[in-house]
Amino acid sequence: MPGAFPQTRRFAAEFTSGTDHERFDFTIVLILDGLLHRWELSRSQRPDVRQAITRIAGAFERVEA
Score class of each variant (00 low, 15 high):
1 M>V: 15
2 P>V: 01
2 P>N: 10
3 G>E: 15
4 A>S: 15
4 A>V: 07
5 F>Q: 05
6 P>V: 07
7 Q>V: 08
8 T>L: 13
8 T>N: 05
10 R>Y: 11
10 R>P: 00
11 F>M: 02
12 A>S: 11
13 A>N: 01
13 A>R: 12
14 E>Y: 07
14 E>K: 06
15 F>A: 15
15 F>P: 01
15 F>N: 13
16 T>A: 14
17 S>K: 15
17 S>A: 15
18 G>T: 01
18 G>L: 03
19 T>D: 10
21 H>I: 09
21 H>G: 06
23 R>I: 01
23 R>P: 04
24 F>T: 12
25 D>Y: 04
25 D>S: 02
25 D>M: 00
27 T>L: 08
27 T>W: 09
29 V>Q: 13
30 L>T: 15
31 I>G: 07
31 I>T: 14
32 L>V: 06
33 D>Y: 09
33 D>G: 14
35 L>G: 13
35 L>K: 08
36 L>A: 12
36 L>F: 05
36 L>K: 11
36 L>G: 04
37 H>K: 13
37 H>M: 04
39 W>S: 12
39 W>R: 08
40 E>A: 12
41 L>M: 15
43 R>W: 14
43 R>L: 13
45 Q>F: 09
46 R>G: 03
46 R>K: 10
47 P>F: 08
47 P>I: 02
47 P>K: 11
49 V>T: 06
50 R>A: 11
50 R>T: 09
50 R>F: 02
51 Q>H: 13
51 Q>W: 04
51 Q>P: 00
51 Q>G: 10
52 A>C: 03
52 A>N: 07
52 A>Q: 07
52 A>T: 10
52 A>H: 08
54 T>I: 06
54 T>E: 06
54 T>Y: 03
56 I>Q: 06
56 I>L: 14
57 A>S: 07
58 G>F: 05
58 G>I: 01
58 G>N: 07
59 A>P: 00
59 A>M: 09
59 A>R: 11
59 A>I: 07
59 A>T: 08
60 F>C: 01
61 E>Y: 03
61 E>W: 07
61 E>P: 01
63 V>K: 05
63 V>N: 04
63 V>S: 05
64 E>R: 13
64 E>W: 05
65 A>W: 02
65 A>Q: 09
